[in-house]
Amino acid sequence: MDHLEHRLLPVNGIDLSLYSAGPADGRPLWLLHGFPECWHSWRQQIPVLARAGYHVLIPEMRGYGQSSAPQAVEAYDLQSLSGDILAAMDALGQQRASVIAHDWGAPVAWNLALTAPQRIEALVTMSVPYAGRPKRPATEIMRKLNQERFNYILYFQEPGVAEAELDADIARSLRTIIFGEGASDAFLQEKPAGAGLLDGLAEPPQSTPWCSEEDFSVYRRTFANGFRGPLNWYRNFERNWQLSEHLAGQQVLQPTLFLLGERDPVGRLEAVTLERMPSVVPNLEQQRFADCGHWIQNERAAEVNALLLDFLARHYPAGG
């Protein structure tokens, strides 16, 4: 990978661990990772985007790695998570930027586009779609639909429960969720409501073609202090809904590219949202990848990179 710089940036009441690459005077481009991932999830995009002339900024999101991990659950609402990025932009003297985001990074990106439209020029989101503020918190709907059936988001709600399971063997937990078919198995497997996330799942492989043992060691270090901070993101569905009342009916007007793997379990879970998304995101381009799972920027790196460069050249050129 090309030369990376690292700093701890005091912003928004926390220390944000921030990696960067590319020319310092290049147009800023933020890459936001998801769960259970790390800044290194963008390892196949960073050099490509940096060589294209962008100033690429890759944070370890709040609760991950070397960034601060507050204990309070409410410290992980979307307002706080988006505030970290906006405060970092301010600290770095960036008036405007574009954002590329995957998984949980996508809701942060959607929220940035909605709440700070004057700061965000273009958007690329992967896996998690957006179709406006729901009429009820998502967890309320999930509880009604999954009274006797396991649902991983509901399982994550009670502090300490999922941590006890996942922290018992962090490397195995990460491998089970990330490698092979683990994402689909872990999040969509039919089992009773009292089950654990990893119950009934096969022993995971040690590596995949797109994640070497050396790469995986970065994921392990990211979660060295456990899963509590990252899991707290899931515990704010109701709070996020309450804080977003002013966004009801608002559209995402920035040029937006949405990428999804056909085998991504989120595609099944968010089928209705995907169908409605074009009405809320009118300047939307979409691309789906056959025979691709959830970890799209790694599983199909070359194709994703080509799409990113084409989209950015049209809507956020490096020399613009």
Rank of each mutant, 00 (worst) to 15 (best):
V128W: 03
P129C: 07
P129T: 12
Y130G: 04
A131L: 08
A131K: 09
G132P: 11
G132F: 14
G132K: 13
R133M: 04
R133D: 06
P134C: 12
K135W: 06
K135G: 15
R136V: 13
P137Q: 02
P137S: 03
P137W: 01
P137H: 07
A138F: 13
A138G: 12
A138P: 00
A138W: 11
T139W: 10
T139N: 06
T139D: 10
I141S: 11
I141K: 15
M142R: 15
M142F: 10
M142P: 01
M142E: 10
R143N: 10
R143I: 01
K144S: 10
N146W: 09
N146Q: 08
N146L: 04
Q147T: 13
E148G: 03
E148R: 15
E148F: 12
R149Y: 07
R149L: 08
R149W: 10
R149F: 08
Y152V: 00
Y152K: 00
I153Q: 15
I153F: 06
I153W: 11
L154G: 06
L154W: 02
L154A: 00
Y155P: 07
Y155I: 03
Y155R: 06
F156C: 13
F156S: 14
Q157L: 08
Q157G: 01
E158H: 10
E158S: 14
E158M: 13
E158I: 10
P159F: 14
G160S: 03
G160I: 06
A162M: 02
E163K: 05
E163A: 09
E163C: 02
E163D: 12
A164R: 14
A164T: 14
A164P: 05
A164D: 02
E165A: 02
E165M: 02
L166M: 06
L166K: 00
L166T: 04
D167H: 13
D167T: 05
A168I: 11
A168Y: 03
A168R: 09
D169N: 15
D169F: 05
I170N: 12
R172Y: 01
R172H: 05
R172D: 07
R172T: 08
R172E: 00
S173G: 09
S173K: 08
S173T: 13
S173V: 05
L174V: 04
R175S: 04
R175N: 07
R175H: 10
T176N: 06
T176W: 08
T176E: 03
I177Q: 04
I177H: 01
I177S: 02
I178F: 03
F179C: 07
G180V: 11
E181T: 10
E181D: 15
G182M: 04
S184R: 15
S184N: 12
S184L: 08
S184G: 14
A186L: 07
A186P: 02
F187Y: 15
F187P: 00
F187W: 06
F187C: 01
L188P: 06
L188G: 01
L188E: 08
Q189G: 13
E190L: 07
K191I: 04
K191L: 00
K191R: 02
K191C: 05
P192M: 04
P192A: 12
P192Y: 00
P192V: 14
G194P: 00
G194D: 12
G194W: 12
A195P: 04
A195K: 06
A195F: 03
G196L: 00
G196Y: 02
G196S: 04
L198G: 04
D199G: 09
D199F: 00
G200Q: 07
G200S: 14
A202H: 08
E203M: 06
E203A: 14
P204M: 14
P204F: 12
P204Y: 08
